[in-house]
């Protein structure tokens, strides 16, 4: 079901359609929260709270306003705002990105290929997630929205309230920083 249809159903009968909204958007909202906060625990709390707030907001909106909502960026906005309100980080950074960049960063290891390759890939993904979570917020949030959640730049502009050109530059810079950090951490395989 596309979001326009879903918005119409929500406007019609919030309680009947809300579960469809949750099931359609729970994975992406959780992924945004996970990659912005860098914490599984925080991500679950943020994603749940985001939907609860969405429900309460929708319950107070007139039907015309609900049916004209752009659900993808609207939900992403709620998630991003909740992430920002949360200062604590569950796990300490595995390695400091700034320190790596300052030091000119030598690659430390390469990904092993072997019987435990799947577990290694999982581990590598988590390490990449940690690197991403340690990007400065002004790069991290646009990179997550653009490349984890695949929002368009027009949608990013709605969520973050900045011009598309600025956001393109932030995403570009964020990716460059992430590539350097990934190479330094021996995660070239994931960049290729």
């Amino acid at each position: 079901m596309d979001d326009r249809t879903l918005a119409g159903l929500l406007a019609d009968d919030l309680d009947a359609a809300f579960e469809t909204l949750v099931r359609a958007h729970v994975d992406r909202c959780h992924a945004i929260a996970l990659r912005v906060t860098g914490s599984h625990h925080d991500a679950e709390e943020v994603a749940q709270e985001a939907f609860v707030r969405a429900y309460r907001a929708l319950a107070g909106y007139p039907p015309e306003r609900i049916s004209s909502l752009r659900l993808r960026p609207w939900l992403a906005t709620i998630v991003v705002n909740l992430c920002r309100n949360r200062h604590r980080r569950a796990a300490p950074p595995a390695l400091s990105l700034t320190a790596l960049l300052d030091a000119g960063a030598e690659p430390q290891a390469t990904l092993a290929s072997g019987p435990a390759a799947t577990a290694e890939r999982h581990d590598a993904r988590e390490r990449l997630g940690t690197l991403l979570a340690n990007l400065p917020e002004r790069y991290r949030v646009p990179v997550v929205l653009r490349h984890v959640d695949s929002l368009s730049y027009a949608e990013l502009a709605l969520v973050l309230g900045k011009p598309e050109g600025t956001l393109k530059a932030q995403v570009h810079r964020g990716l460059a920083m992430l590539r350097v950090a990934a190479a330094a951490a021996g995660l070239e395989e994931l960049i290729a």
Binding site: V26, D27, L128, G129, V148
Partner: peptide, 17 residues
């Protein structure tokens, strides 16, 4: 590099909401 960072939310999350 980054699309690998998407993953399904925990199964209980939708029910919790």
């Amino acid at each position: 590099m980054l699309t690998s960072l998407t993953a399904p939310a925990p199964a209980h999350l939708a029910d919790d909401v």
